[in-house]
Amino acid sequence: MDRILVSPSPHIHARTSTSALMRDVVIALLPSVIVSILYYGWSAMVLLAASVVSCIVVEYLITRFMYKAPSTVGDWSSSVTGVLLFLNLPPSCPWWVAVIGAVFAIGVVKMTFGGLGQNLFNPAIAARVFLLVSFPTFMTNWAAPKGFIGGVDAVSGATPLGIVKEGLAQGMTLPEIYAQHDFSYLQTLFINIGGSAGEISAIAILAGFIYLLARKVIRPYITLSILATVFVFSGIFWIVNPDQYTDPLFNLLTGGVLLGAVFMATDYVTSPMSDKGGVIFGVGIGLLTILIRYFGSYPEGMSFAILIMNSVVPLINKFCKQKKYGR
């Protein structure tokens, strides 16, 4: 011991790290990824690879050549964005759309603000909305490609929410629409073909949620307040007019509410710091989602709701502070 090390206290550290937290998020996403690859087959794999690889490459290039700093790829955050982007795309979407989405997510939404921790909007969600606006045909083509199991070959179709929206526009009532397309909750819960890659299984998403909670990566307040708000708010409408407004369970299980509530809204960077703020944030997302679904022109509203609430996070952080000792 030639030279004693000196540093200010504390001298020990919990040894949590950004990369470990992000790696946990990737692990939590695995069930959804595996299920969607099993059911959507090769095209899903290509899409996943395109999305993750391009996210990592874009981040690497920007940190090295624009920031002229050591690469931050090792913190796993670009991988999280890549996987989330894949889960937000229709499985039949061409791989180059995923690449464009990745460039937008990392290059525009994340890195222009200064990289990890600095961005205002969730990169994956912002990229999804960007793609939805730029490539509406690809982004609303819900044809399911052939998977490794399940044997569903190119089931055409729209998402349940899309079917409802269209039916309502044609002046049908909900029971009539349901009668036309046989629809079961049980199916949504386990395997639901039709929708984004990540919407395939509610159970898989919940498994990820439980993993994140168990590893203390996230706290449950944001997720639960979104789900509760969606349930209660849509429930009120449904009680008033069950012919016109979809029921609460339907709203919970469709259109990426679960995916968004568990993985997108809980993103550290773009969600409020305090639990109180998290509840406000979650309630806001829930309300906006239902409002967009019932009264907007897009069938699902989760992405827009999250983006809108992302923009008010700084305000929430400013006004929702935890109680200080002795004040």
Binding site: G114, L116, Y268
Partner: peptide, 21 residues
């Protein structure tokens, strides 16, 4: 304390996780 216990890891960006608060 050993190096492994006490050495600080390089600082990276705040990810606003709120763990400190």
């Amino acid at each position: 304390l050993t190096a492994e216990q006490t050495e600080r890891k390089p600082e990276s960006n705040c990810i606003r996780c709120g763990k400190c608060a």
